[in-house]
Design a protein around this nucleic acid. Structure first.
Lengths: 117, 117
DNA sequence: GTGTTGATTCGATAACCATCGAGACAGGAG
DNA sequence: CTCCTGTCTCGATGGTTATCGAATCAACAC
């Protein structure tokens, strides 16, 4: 599939999310359907660490991520795809290597939801 | 970190979480194992809406939550237990009814992780 | 005690998911 | 071109989960 420098899937909408506060007003059914997959993507210890590693630098090569886990590269690739499909990260191939970086607005949408008042 | 003694469920530990920023420093394997279940609990549209409904008031009776969904009360009860086991909410029975409220520090731990800088 | 209503647990089922090995694809080196 | 290395996809498999009806438990009214 065409790799995404120009994004795909979920995540775009995040820019337009109403914002603010699980508490302030109950999230709508539609918003829940769109936000839940992002939480779900972070709901696995491996993916949470992957996201964290990616977020701790402007971008990170897959070749640095794979050896950080005791898992096959197929599994890591699968988890990275899950994070990408959720709109949390994006990837770009440059030559032999593939680099991942976070989509800050997606994370911001989550933060807004779960932040107090 | 003084790991959790005799806890009702997860979530207590959240009070002692180091804090701050998926990005600032990569989350440890142990932290990931404890934080991921909280994200996972919010990773279902029904549970996200339940958490939102509970968070939008000081406390909410199950008898108000159940009719808000087109699901059996068994299913709602199951989802509430998932949220409770994740440490995101707590419940109290008063007479005939059971009331749920959020555990703000648990939410704060999530917010800290996913918030910028 | 019996009965009623709210909430949870039990057992089953269908759908989903994490993981792997094997294979395919992409890009560079010789 | 042929190899080699990095990444992804495919197919299979064992484990988990969302959902339900039925049964159970808890508190109250009678």
């Amino acid at each position: 599939m065409a790799t995404d420098v120009t994004i795909t899937s979920a995540g775009e909408w995040a820019d337009t999310v109403a914002c603010c506060g699980l508490a302030t007003s109950p999230v709508t059914e539609q918003d829940a359907d769109r936000l839940a997959p992002m939480f779900k993507a972070l709901g696995d210890p491996v993916r949470l660490r992957l996201a964290s590693l990616i977020a701790s630098a402007p971008e990170v090569c897959v070749c640095e991520l794979t050896p950080a886990f005791d898992l096959s590269s197929a599994t890591i690739s699968h988890h990275l795809k899950t994070l990408r499909d959720a709109g949390l990260v994006e990837s770009e191939r440059r030559g032999t290597y593939v680099y991942y970086r976070v989509r800050p607005r997606a994370l911001a949408a989550l933060a807004a939801l779960v932040s107090p008042g």
